[in-house]
Design a protein around this nucleic acid. Sequence first.
DNA 1: CTAAAATAGTTGACGCAGTCCATTATATCA
DNA 2: TGATATAATGGACTGCGTCAACTATTTTAG
Lengths: 304, 304
Amino acid sequence: MFSADQIADIQGFNKVYQNLLKQIDSAILKTGYTLTEKDVLLEISKTERCTANILIQQLSIDRSYMSRMIAKFEKHGLIEKTPSQTDNRIRYVRLTELGRKEINRLSDIQSNHIGSIFNKLSQEDQQIVWQSMVLIKNKLSDANDVITIRPFTQSDIEYVISRHKTLYYAERHLSGTFSAYVDEIVYRFVDNFNAQTDCLKILECNGVPAGSIAIAKVDFQTAQLRFFMLEPEMRQRGYGNRLMDMALDFCRQKGYKKVFLLTITAQVIARHVYETHGFYKTASYDKSEWGDGVIEERWELLLN
Amino acid sequence: MFSADQIADIQGFNKVYQNLLKQIDSAILKTGYTLTEKDVLLEISKTERCTANILIQQLSIDRSYMSRMIAKFEKHGLIEKTPSQTDNRIRYVRLTELGRKEINRLSDIQSNHIGSIFNKLSQEDQQIVWQSMVLIKNKLSDANDVITIRPFTQSDIEYVISRHKTLYYAERHLSGTFSAYVDEIVYRFVDNFNAQTDCLKILECNGVPAGSIAIAKVDFQTAQLRFFMLEPEMRQRGYGNRLMDMALDFCRQKGYKKVFLLTITAQVIARHVYETHGFYKTASYDKSEWGDGVIEERWELLLN
DNA sequence: CTAAAATAGTTGACGCAGTCCATTATATCA
DNA sequence: TGATATAATGGACTGCGTCAACTATTTTAG
């Protein structure tokens, strides 16, 4: 248990850090955007096929407020609204060139502010403080995040496609060819989904989707592992292994003898998960149509 | 310099911690008080001879807002206003029994919330996270706080009296007799102040007073060191030694041969500063009229 | 010693982020 | 085919916090 002195220390830390966050916030406010507006713009920039409703759920913002905010953004030329082809209630929201410029500007202000605070520290202290922050973040997240792994629902499909594309695109700079490929394989997978032979699990962190994994039947003995993905903030915390365990358990339960997966060389952290679960690389293919120097790899695992 | 990945880590930490602070805040908001109101109540409870203006300066809150807030507190029976005897513009603000109960309740909510977050961690992790927080707080404070030491002005007198009494009272549980004693010696010191023989310096942190030290002439060869005080959050960071250096430099410059000071046994951290500057204890007096078992000590230093 | 400037506090008016509720249009379910 | 759910919008409102004008008193300066 904590002593009163330790609680006081933590409150002291809270005060100091709250102050520091306020400084960053006020730098953002000087640009004329609300903090909420900044969050919304950022979320739009991170989300493919973004709708007002997705934003409302992800950021817990009032519907009418969001509606007005989006209207304002459109008026200022930061975003474009395009009606959905399949559902006339939905209007997709996408950043314009100007909008992207603005959110980059806001992000830069934030980064620069953090940089300027840390530059006042010695090189050595910078590393120490950084390491301490990462440590605190991981410990607190692990202890306080509510994590659930659940079967997918219809509304998760958009999430899987959108985030799969966005994360691969953002982190590995893959091309539009790859994007179309993801669309196709996800829809084909869902259309042919059979609960007896396939599975698609969603990892949720505090009620918000934060990762996915899927098993698709290829033939009686062979399954393909697909759509393995984790939000950046969930990585290196053991959730990748938990998803993988769950997927492989499903395979064993259903009597598959072999599991394979396709990935790209650049996915270093994922490779590690594959290796620790006994996968080994069996082939490499050139996939330069997805991006410069992209190499797809095939990994396999024989189940006992 | 920092890498982009490190900046991202820090932004991740900010996000997680901002979330955590929000949780604590929302627990406070559920009580019906604004966060600002909580801050104001807390500041009133910490400040003796508190006035609206002191609150305005310490918390950077608008005058009209403060006026209305104080009126509201008075209406709800949380505080009492008493006009000053010496300045008819001033109305002193003091917590009632109910007000003290409320601020204790709010503080408890905060502490309990912090406790509940940390209790989810293992004993070991609790210690690690706590240590990391203290480390970050100290490093960031040292690097970012703007510290100045400046001569006193008229408006500092209230500060010195108020904080001297509050800090001693809060930390050492001294009695009302001590309180009257401080009032008297401060006013006598200021009334007889002579810049040639005396000095009173104020330590400012980010534009807010955060400590003090004074030298008072006793005779041609002897000076008394008085009003040595540091806000809790400024301690153990070298500012006590800086104030002491400054005071002793003044003494040497003015040709004093001997400096003495009176303190109480319980002041452990201050003792350390005295010792490192070459003071030694020459006498102890019983001062139980100030509080249970209080012993006053006399320390001396011969200047070369 | 008196007029000007500074300080403590109060009151009026208002901006604006964020909320609540009702409404429209479309889609889905039973 | 009617009942229910969902996406988005518009009207009305709350309440934290700000700006500016004003009173009363004290301090300063010529």
